[in-house]
Write a protein that binds this DNA or RNA. Sequence first.
DNA 1: CTGTATCCTACAAGATACTG
DNA 2: CAGTATCTTGTAGGATACAG
Lengths: 115, 115
Amino acid sequence: MPVQPSECPVESVISILSGRWKIPIYRYLFINNKPVRYSELHRHLPSISKKMLTEQLRELERDGIIERKSYPEPRPRVEYTLTSSGRSMIVFLDQMSDWGQHHNQNKRDEREDII
Amino acid sequence: MPVQPSECPVESVISILSGRWKIPIYRYLFINNKPVRYSELHRHLPSISKKMLTEQLRELERDGIIERKSYPEPRPRVEYTLTSSGRSMIVFLDQMSDWGQHHNQNKRDEREDII
DNA sequence: CTGTATCCTACAAGATACTG
DNA sequence: CAGTATCTTGTAGGATACAG
């Protein structure tokens, strides 16, 4: 039997973040740092479909990264925010970003060495 | 047009690590900290097929995480090691692991609150 | 405004057999 | 020993239409 997904914390974190739109959504919620409406997210993410946006939001919610609040007013309104646990991912996300940039730079350097 | 994969370092790091066997392979190479043969990896990973093992190794190599050395002896031998850049991923992988464990604990606590 | 419901395609991943 | 080559399947992701 292969490893269970939940058996390794690293693998489960990666799978939490592995959707096509997870990081863009996370980034927007992080930077804005306030409740953000569904329509605002949709406006901000140029080419996502409503179906995908809803799917990715539901997954992030299920995984405890974001919180969804619905206000059933005459004009329905739904707002999303990062949970504090979700927000705290920034620690390793920042380090991943740094590592990624250095790593790309190294690979560029190697290519130029060859040329 | 959606975001290019390379445009965001975080997304490219996630995609580097997103194969089914990437983390198990990484972990084994990291812990052993010496050149590891193809057959040893295959023996260690209970249910991976040779096709998948080769595929995942090729991707990790392409992405600069591991190095492949082939010794075309009478009994062919191929050894894999982490590159120094690959090895340095441990910094954020450790933090992801910590975050994942706390996050799971939080979610368990919440469930018990409800019950 | 905030979604569902369907249908479709591409690609990751697995099973199995074969090879230098 | 260290792989390829083929075939099949499951699922993520996208297009489009409809709905409370």
